[in-house]
């Protein structure tokens, strides 16, 4: 077998992706810029803060060459707000992901940093600055769970009130896991074409991927004949009327 893994990223691969997230550090030693394949690292001069990839930050942390600055959403107050939002304000949906990064131009307008030209590569997690110290508080980025776990495991002394953070994260994870299960139970009433999981995290997706796809596949196979007859009926009822809107959508 060339690759003995199931389709879809497994948790260890998600963790690997998460290690590409950028994080803010406060260096404790000077370190010249290093030419890496993913671009040169900033040259580190204490106590100037710099953003570097998480894997490098953890390496520097282990050798006590730097301290990691936890992102604002990992603070106790932010986590309490998030739990309040998840349990009281909106008990059905997940809390919203952080807004796309914007930058102000000289005329005082904010533009999306990431809209890009026609051929520019659009950045997405883990390449968005969602775990640096400039990230917004009160919004969980895509890799929140793995990121928080890794920081707690390797740099818990850099996180203020680490034990509180740990227990709040546990609560948050349980609340959100329950929502994932409810959203699957919602499939009982019928499967639409598209299901939206706005605000879900990478690890949450990875751990329930097998179950969710299994349910969706199973329902599809059970309903295959009903679906085929429905499509036939729709075509008979007025082929032209029904086809037009879907053709339009394809053109967008």
């Amino acid at each position: 077998m060339a690759l003995p893994l199931p389709p879809g990223l497994v948790p260890s691969e998600v963790a690997f992706l998460c290690e590409m997230e950028h994080v803010t550090i406060v260096p404790r030693q000077r370190l010249e810029s290093i030419e890496l394949l993913s671009g040169a690292t900033p040259s580190l001069r204490p106590p100037r803060r710099e953003d570097i990839p998480l894997w490098l930050a953890l390496l520097l942390k282990k050798q006590r060459r730097a301290n990691i600055l936890p992102p604002p959403w990992l603070h106790v107050d932010s986590l309490r707000d998030l739990i309040h939002h998840e349990t009281v304000t909106d008990p059905t949906g997940w809390s919203l992901p952080p807004p796309p990064p914007v930058r102000a131009d000289g005329r005082g307008n904010a533009r999306r940093l990431n809209s890009g030209g026609p051929d520019a590569t659009v950045l997405s997690p883990p390449f968005l600055p969602s775990c640096t110290s400039s990230a917004p508080a009160g919004a969980l980025p895509y890799h929140w769970f793995e990121f928080a776990e890794m920081l707690l495991a390797h740099a818990s002394d850099d996180i203020p009130a680490a034990s509180d953070v740990r227990s709040l994260l546990r609560d948050l994870q349980e609340v959100r896991a329950a929502k994932m299960r409810t959203s699957i139970a919602g499939l009982e009433s019928g499967v639409d074409g598209v299901m939206s999981l706005l605000g879900v995290g990478a690890m949450e997706l990875s751990e329930s991927r097998g179950f969710v796809t299994g349910v969706v596949e199973g329902v599809r196979k059970l309903g295959a004949s009903a679906e085929a007859s429905r499509r036939e009926e729709e075509e008979e009822r007025g082929g032209a009327d029904d086809d037009e809107p879907s053709d339009d959508d394809m053109g967008i």
Binding site: P100, V122, G190, V191, D192, G193, L197, R230, D249, I252
Partner: peptide, 28 residues
Amino acid sequence: LRDRQVTGQGTDADITLNASNGEILILR
């Protein structure tokens, strides 16, 4: 990666919804 309409075929209904940047969807 961009805001746009998404049409998906489903067992019980085909639906079209507006999806925004960063939203995660399950579809065929």
